[in-house]
Design a protein around this nucleic acid. Sequence first.
DNA 1: TCTGATAAGTCAAACGTTTGCATACCTTTG
DNA 2: CAAAGGTATGCAAACGTTTGACTTATCAGA
Lengths: 337, 337
Amino acid sequence: MEKKVPTIKEIARKLNISVSTVSRALHDHPSIGLRTKTAVKNMAAALNYEPNQTAIFFKKGKTFTLGIVLPNLAEEFFSAVINGIEQVSMQNNYIALVGQSHDSLETEKKIVETMKNHRVDGILASISKNTTEIDHFRQMNKYGIPVVFFDRVPDVADIHSVSCNLYDSSVEAVEYLINLGHRRIGYLQGPPTLSIKNERLDGYRDAHKKHQLPLDESLIVHSDLSTEGTQAAFDQLMSLENRPTAILAFNDYVALDAIRYARQKKLRINKDISFVSYANLPVTRYVDFPPLASVEQFPFEQGARATELLFKLINQKSSGQEMPYENVVLQGKLVLH
Amino acid sequence: MEKKVPTIKEIARKLNISVSTVSRALHDHPSIGLRTKTAVKNMAAALNYEPNQTAIFFKKGKTFTLGIVLPNLAEEFFSAVINGIEQVSMQNNYIALVGQSHDSLETEKKIVETMKNHRVDGILASISKNTTEIDHFRQMNKYGIPVVFFDRVPDVADIHSVSCNLYDSSVEAVEYLINLGHRRIGYLQGPPTLSIKNERLDGYRDAHKKHQLPLDESLIVHSDLSTEGTQAAFDQLMSLENRPTAILAFNDYVALDAIRYARQKKLRINKDISFVSYANLPVTRYVDFPPLASVEQFPFEQGARATELLFKLINQKSSGQEMPYENVVLQGKLVLH
DNA sequence: TCTGATAAGTCAAACGTTTGCATACCTTTG
DNA sequence: CAAAGGTATGCAAACGTTTGACTTATCAGA
């Protein structure tokens, strides 16, 4: 056991040739003769030689490793994103380090730091809901590590990003409820930090304008995304003198929490109160009363596109050119259940 | 931009001392004088020096990286395991590469191969349901990469593992149903590959014996864990002349699929048919009719314990000693809903 | 026979760090 | 005052691989 791993040197010694010849032979360099080449390859096979990647990483200054920073793996949305990332990175023979911020800025910083130390070739990040500044990501610039943000994207222009535009689908979602006859539609929003670039709210507002429905600000409430927060927000809506008959929820989890809570309160789903939400997660398939519709945000595609963009940046870097900031925007899509 | 990163050499040159002195100074080596030490540290700080980890990895032959191989991140069970792994590995300044086998043996092999190439210091693995042999893991031995299996553990003795014993809690689960008055209890099993070491079934059988209930083999059916497979298995149970009044389901997903299907068939949950299952996943909180009880398998603890064991192996390795095969077994626990 | 091209291979430096050993100086101590 | 011991530092090798520059042999063409 622990038999020391064979190296290029050993092959060279056994064959009485130089290491450079061995190296080139293994890489099919043109200036190595066929005879030597096959001899080397045979010997390599016989010894069960495997190149020492850490040496190569070191020598080449690349690690063929990507870093993924995201809030929480347990959310189906993010594990779907990872599948997208995985697909593209595997094609490129890259592998990924994963770090969860658990929505803590401190943890996020620590993860980014660790990834920098591990000299990842690039970073894919979805920021935590408490990320108020992105200096720790900007730092990566100095180390030549490109960063691509996805989904939860900071609202600034000088970054690379892939995200999902929810404006149109928000309009569509509200119109869908209006067409069902709803006139009082609540909006159960997420925390302010996640609502800076508030496409959902803009869509909500504009759909009202478009259909000449009055806009009642008391119909817009916040949840911190915890179950309790959502329940409090729901109570707030239900205590209005003029209750909403439908609710647009920040995401499926919020909708599910609200629906469960509403049922505890003996409200009849889809009669007393209807729901539409965002994310279109598989988990909604298991419940009796899922939201009527949900806006698909294409996690897999976001992951795949972000990774493609990242690879473009990585390759561009080695070719020395500068790339303009690229912001890929996928269009969300309302899916009826 | 792309300003080249400062190295230990630069510090040495600027200070007109040797690199070894710098290296030792930065590591607080006792034989470096205070004056030199502070000078070096100041210069390092001024230049914003960061050690090149790839060089260190290479030199030390370690990467401070763990590999995690598991079937599917989207399962809440596994993301909970990752949280456990994360906690322990962060304490040790390790970071983790994650690979999903998606229940394909081929993919699993490829992941393990890639991780070996990246020279991870150790591997944590939960095998796919199609993993019939574990040579690819055994190979790691030759490279001095210890492997610890968790949860879905191969049924052989010469490995390290952390898993959850489900025998006692299976007995308990069935007894719970018996105490509720059930006399015909179906067992909706998983695929044969996952049932080699069949503690669930043994518990199911022994609980029957213990309570002198006849054991009807037709009450034991298989699902491949897909929704359709589960529905087929459920139909099989319901087409018996003497139907079960309760079902022990392989895991929560199976139970949820079956429950939904049962409701489509107008069966009344907890009246016509009751469920108990395994995993105790948070997702069951969102449904109207969760299983009556579920066996907690402590994913977080499994992840943490497996990682602790792995670190023991990694450290033992460098101290040259051999460790006996260790198989940590946590006891599952029936949780009433 | 000489020139020059080509093929096949070697040499040695380089990547950044760690570490065993040697060295230089200084201070004790017998 | 010389030997011993300690303190602070430098030297150089080593980890495994890649790669630009260089050497040697072979051979075609003039």
